[in-house]
Amino acid sequence: MIKKDRLVENFLDMVKISSPSKNERAMGDYLLKILKELGLEVREDNAGEVNGGNCGNIIGILRAPGKKRLLFSAHMDTVVPCEKVVPVIENDIIKSDGTSILGGDDKGGIAAIIEMLRVIKENNLDHPEIVVVFSMGEEIGLLGSKSFDINSYGVDFGFILDSSGKPGKIITKAPSAARGKITIIGKPAHAGISPENGINALTVAAHAITKIKLGRIDAETTSNIGVVKGGQATNIVMPSIELDYEARSLSNEKLNTLINETFDIFQKVCNEFGAILENNVKIEYPGFSLEDCEEIVKIVKTACEKVGIKSETASSGGGSDTNIYNSKGVKSVNLAVGMTKVHTLEEYIEIKDLVDLSKILVEIVKG
């Protein structure tokens, strides 16, 4: 039932549409048109307005009164560079020409959802009530899903299409994440005339960094300082420094312990040097954990079995809209799309994976 050429053509059309975070308008208009043509009830919420973007979440509903209501979701935004994507097909693999990302993250997920809807309509398949959400601002903090009022739609289960790996991989566990800035305020002084009168913020940060835990803490927990900003000139004792920090863990207890330990160390070192510590690190999104015996997991595994695709459950080190929907009380899983080397110029996706994912979605709705 899956029409491979149509699926690929749709995917190619979408990756050519530039849609960086908070600038998804062109992509949103494209999807509004398709969903309307397919006969769904279509609307756009105010997530763009709330988050400073030019497009809200695009929502479509395919009615089936009295039946279970399933959510299928993928995000519209991509990382940069995505201004002029030129897709290339070689040996049944789609990639960019090397000057940009491809955008399979997450337009591969969107393409599979659209193909699923087309198969339902043209084959007049019996189906549950379907809510489709194409979210904005996922790449910069899951903004669209945080703003989406999922509880007003009465969704029973959510299937989010936003994981790397081969179709059949089911993400049932993902970490909580904390993120923000740690700022150390020292004291400026002339570096050549009176450095002893200053407090070098970099020195303070360096002493603290040697004491905190960074990198892989254990199998469930990571910690990282990814961006450092500070200084004015070489002849000025650095007056302040700003560290972009994040920590993740599948265990909320471990995450809270790590964050508290990190802040305590920074505060102690700042006190020793007479510097001031400011931090706005906070929980950005909660984690989730589903057991293999859950009904939603069984639904996906059964669908995979029907189309001859091996399924497996796995945990992820990254966050997605799945985290947010689970935190709002809707049991959701993140399904692998097949996208590979995402967020790089070497990103690619196999056509077979797009087809296999679409097959899985059709079987999920057929039940």
Rank of each mutant, 00 (worst) to 15 (best):
S18E: 11
S21L: 08
K22C: 11
N23H: 14
G28S: 04
D29V: 14
L31V: 09
V42I: 13
N46R: 11
L62S: 01
K67S: 15
F72W: 03
D77Y: 12
P81D: 11
C82W: 08
C82F: 05
E83Q: 13
V85H: 06
V86E: 14
V86K: 14
I93F: 00
I94D: 07
K95A: 12
G104S: 15
K107V: 08
V119G: 01
V119Y: 03
I120D: 04
N123S: 11
N124Q: 14
L125G: 04
D126M: 06
H127Y: 01
G137E: 10
G144Y: 07
K146T: 05
F148P: 05
L161G: 13
P167Q: 09
P167W: 08
T172K: 13
A174G: 15
S176R: 12
A177E: 14
K187I: 00
P188T: 04
A189Y: 03
I199G: 01
L202N: 11
A206L: 14
I209R: 03
A219F: 11
G226W: 02
G231Q: 09
M238H: 00
I241F: 08
I241R: 06
E242H: 04
F266I: 00
N279L: 00
S289E: 15
E291S: 15
E291G: 11
D292R: 10
E294L: 00
E294M: 06
E295P: 04
I299A: 08
K301F: 02
G308R: 09
K310Q: 13
A314I: 11
K331A: 10
V337R: 03
E346K: 15
I351D: 05
I351F: 06
I360N: 11
